[in-house]
Nucleic acid binder design. Structure first.
Length: 569
DNA sequence: GTTCCCCGCGCG
DNA sequence: AAAGCGCGCGGGGAAC
C-alpha cells in the first residue's frame, strides 16, 4: 500500500486479511526506485488512493506496475452497486467521492503566466494519507466480502483498476501522430494555414457562395439562430440549421453551406490550433478518464480522444520501423447481450461471423442494414421508423435477449436500479424525477403532468435498457485490454537501434497500447513484434470472453490490421 | 466581465 | 433518413 505521510510516503506490505506485514517510510525521491524494487521482487497488487495521482510520476521515472487497487474508482463502484448488501460505510466516507476529473483546465498562476495543472494539484482529491488509505481499503474489503457476488465484483474491480493503469500508460506513451500528414489533410480541405484570427481560403470561398445564393452579403454563418433567420428570409423552411435537415431542401445556398459547416467543424475541433496544443514530438496524448461515464465507459477530458474524426485517422502513423496494429470488435454490444441473456439463437447468429449477416441468413430480416437498425433499436429503445418495425420480429426470434433489455427498461421506468454483468449499478433516479412520477398520479395534478411524467419514465427506461449492455460491454473491453497489457508487457525489448524515441523510457523498446476507443485498440509495435502483437490481441479477446462468460458459446471476432498508417475505414 | 446553457456535430 | 443510448467540445448568446 502507498500512503502519504509527513514529508514523504509510507510503503506498507499487507497480508491477505489486511494485516500489516512490514512498513517503511520513504522521502518522495526514493519512491520510484523503492517501488521498482518491490515490483521486481514481489509483483504485488499496489493499493493507492488514485492511480491518476500516483502513477504518472512513476511512469516518468521509467517504472511500470503490473496490478493495482484504485481506491477511488473501486469506491464509486461499491458505493452504488446493488450487489453490496450494506454500503452504509462507503456512503458515509464522502471524501472518496471526489469527481473523476483528472485535471483542471489551464489556469493562471503566479510566476508562469500559464501552467498546466498537474494531478498533484487537483482541487478535489481523495484522501491519500496512509491512515485514510488503509481505512478505506478496510471498508472496501468488508463491503466486498459481504456482497452477493464477490467473485464477479472482484473481476470488475480488478478490471477497473487495470484500466486506471492503462489510461496513465496510454497518455504517457501517446499515439504516434504525423503532423505533416495532418497539415496536408487540413490544407487539402481548407486551404493553406491562414494567419491567426482569419479564416482559411476555402471557407471564405464557400461563405461567399452561401451569401451570394441567399442574396444577403452579411449572413452570419457561425451563429445558428441568426443563420436560421437568414434561411427563412430566403424561403428555406427549416426548423434548425442541422445538416440532416438542410439536406432535405433544394436551394443553391444549401450545398456551399453544408461544405462550409464541414470545414468549420474540422477547423474548430481538429484544426491547426488543436495540432499545436495536443501533438508534441510526434505523439498525440489525450487525457483519458477511466470510469468517467456512468455506464463504466471511459470519458476523456481534453484533446477529444474519443472523437478523433475518421478524416484524420491517416495522421496516426507508426514510427519508422514500427507498425500500428489496430483491432476493433465486431458488434460488441449485441454479442454481449447475447452472452448475458444466454440467447442461443442470437449467439448462433453471430457465431464466427458478422452478427447482422447472421440475422439475415436466419431469415429474420431481408438486409444487413435492416438487421443493424433493428438491433440498435433493441439496444437503445427505438420505437419509430425502420427500427420500430424490426424490433417486434427480433423479440419473437431472440426472446431471451429481448427479455433482458425489456426487463431493464421496465425496471428503469419504475424508478428501479439495474446492474451490469459484473456488478456496476445504474444511479438512482433524481429526486425531481421521483417527485414528478408521484405527483402525476394525484387527482389534482396539473394538465399535462401525467404525460410529462410518462415521457420521463420512458426516457429513463431507455437509459437503463442501454445501461446493462453498454456497461457490460465496457467491462468486456476493460478485461480485454487488461489481458492484452499483461501479454505485451512480456514481450522482449528490441535492440536500442530499433527504439521509438518519443514513446518515453517505458514504451520505446517493445509493443505497447497506444489508443483505446470503447471497442477498439491500437498497439504500436516494432515491425518484428507486429504479428505477435496481433496474436496477443486476439488471444486477449478470447480470454476476456471466457472470463466474463465461462462456458458460453459466444465469440468476439476482431477486425485486425497491421499497417504503417491508420486507415480511414 | 464571467458563467452557464444550447446548438450542432464528431465518436462508439 | 438519422431514430433510440452514451459522451466532449467549440461557439454563440443569454443570464448573472
Amino acid at each position: 500500500m502507498l500512503g502519504r505521510e509527513d514529508g514523504g510516503v509510507r510503503l506498507t506490505a499487507l497480508g491477505a486479511d489486511g494485516e500489516t506485514l512490514w512498513t517503511q517510510s520513504l522521502v518522495s525521491e526514493q519512491l520510484a526506485s523503492a517501488v521498482a524494487r518491490c515490483e521486481a521482487e514481489h509483483s504485488p497488487r499496489w493499493v493507492w488512493s488514485d492511480a491518476a495521482a500516483w502513477y504518472p510520476s512513476l511512469l516518468a521515472a521509467g517504472v511500470t506496475l503490473e496490478r493495482c487497487h484504485d481506491l477511488r474508482l473501486v469506491h464509486r463502484i461499491l458505493r452504488h452497486s446493488e450487489l453490496v448488501e450494506d454500503p452504509a460505510l462507503l456512503r458515509a466516507a464522502s471524501a472518496w467521492d471526489a469527481p473523476l476529473e483528472p485535471h483542471e483546465p489551464v489556469r493562471e498562476t503566479g510566476q508562469a503566466l500559464f501552467e498546466l495543472d498537474t494531478a498533484a494539484s487537483r482541487s478535489a482529491e481523495v484522501p491519500s494519507d496512509a491512515a485514510g488509505t488503509l481505512a478505506e481499503l478496510s471498508r472496501q474489503r468488508t463491503a466486498l466480502d459481504a456482497s452477493r457476488a464477490p467473485s464477479r465484483l472482484r473481476l470488475l474491480l480488478a478490471a477497473e483498476s487495470a484500466g486506471a493503469l492503462i489510461a496513465a500508460e496510454l497518455q504517457a506513451a501517446g499515439i504516434p501522430w504525423d503532423e505533416a500528414e495532418h497539415d496536408r489533410i487540413l490544407t487539402e480541405a481548407l486551404g493553406p494555414r491562414p494567419s491567426p484570427g482569419s479564416p482559411p481560403a476555402r471557407m471564405v470561398e464557400a461563405g461567399a457562395e452561401v451569401r451570394a445564393a441567399l442574396g444577403d452579403p452579411l449572413v452570419p454563418l457561425d451563429s445558428p439562430p441568426r443563420l436560421l433567420r437568414a434561411l427563412h428570409r430566403a424561403g428555406i423552411d427549416v426548423s434548425s440549421t442541422s445538416q440532416w435537415e438542410l439536406m432535405e431542401h433544394d436551394h443553391p445556398a444549401i450545398d456551399p453551406l453544408l461544405r462550409y459547416k464541414k470545414m468549420s467543424r474540422l477547423l474548430t475541433a481538429n484544426g491547426w490550433t488543436w495540432l499545436d496544443e495536443w501533438v508534441h514530438e510526434g505523439r498525440y496524448r489525450p487525457v483519458y478518464v477511466p470510469g468517467g461515464v456512468v455506464t463504466g465507459r471511459w470519458a476523456s477530458s481534453g484533446g477529444g480522444a474519443l472523437q478523433v474524426p475518421r478524416q484524420l485517422r491517416p495522421a496516426m502513423r507508426a514510427d519508422p520501423g514500427w507498425r500500428l496494429v489496430s483491432a476493433d470488435v465486431s458488434q460488441l454490444e449485441p454479442r454481449v447481450l447475447a452472452a448475458m441473456s444466454g440467447d442461443a439463437a442470437m449467439i448462433t447468429a453471430g457465431a464466427g461471423k458478422d452478427l447482422y449477416s447472421g440475422i439475415v441468413e436466419a431469415g429474420i430480416v431481408a438486409t444487413r442494414q435492416e438487421a443493424k437498425v433493428g438491433v440498435l433499436g433493441a439496444l437503445y429503445g427505438g420505437t419509430t421508423g425502420d427500427s420500430g418495425r424490426v424490433v417486434p420480429r427480433l423479440r419473437q426470434r431472440f426472446p431471451a435477449a429481448m427479455a433482458l433489455v425489456d426487463g431493464a427498461a421496465a425496471t428503469g421506468e419504475r424508478g428501479g436500479t439495474v446492474t451490469t454483468w459484473l456488478g456496476r449499478s445504474s444511479p438512482a433516479p433524481e429526486e425531481a424525477w421521483t417527485a414528478a412520477q408521484r405527483s402525476a398520479h394525484q387527482v389534482d395534478a396539473p394538465g399535462g403532468a401525467a404525460e410529462t411524467a410518462r415521457r420521463a419514465a420512458r426516457d429513463r427506461g431507455r437509459f437503463t435498457r442501454n445501461f446493462v449492455v453498454q456497461g457490460t460491454a465496457a467491462e468486456w473491453a476493460l478485461s480485454w485490454m487488461a489481458a492484452l497489457r499483461l501479454a505485451l508487457d512480456r514481450f522482449a525489448p528490441v535492440p536500442e537501434q530499433e527504439a521509438a524515441g518519443p514513446s518515453g523510457p517505458v514504451f520505446s523498446r517493445r509493443a505497447h497500447l497506444a489508443f483505446f476507443l470503447h471497442d477498439e485498440v491500437i498497439v504500436h509495435a516494432p515491425a518484428s513484434q507486429a504479428e505477435d502483437a496481433a496474436h496477443a490481441i486476439q488471444e486477449a479477446a478470447d480470454a476476456a470472453g471466457r472470463l466474463l462468460f465461462p462456458g458460453s458459446a459466444i465469440d468476439f471476432p476482431l477486425d485486425l490490421t497491421i499497417s504503417e498508417r491508420s486507415a480511414q475505414k
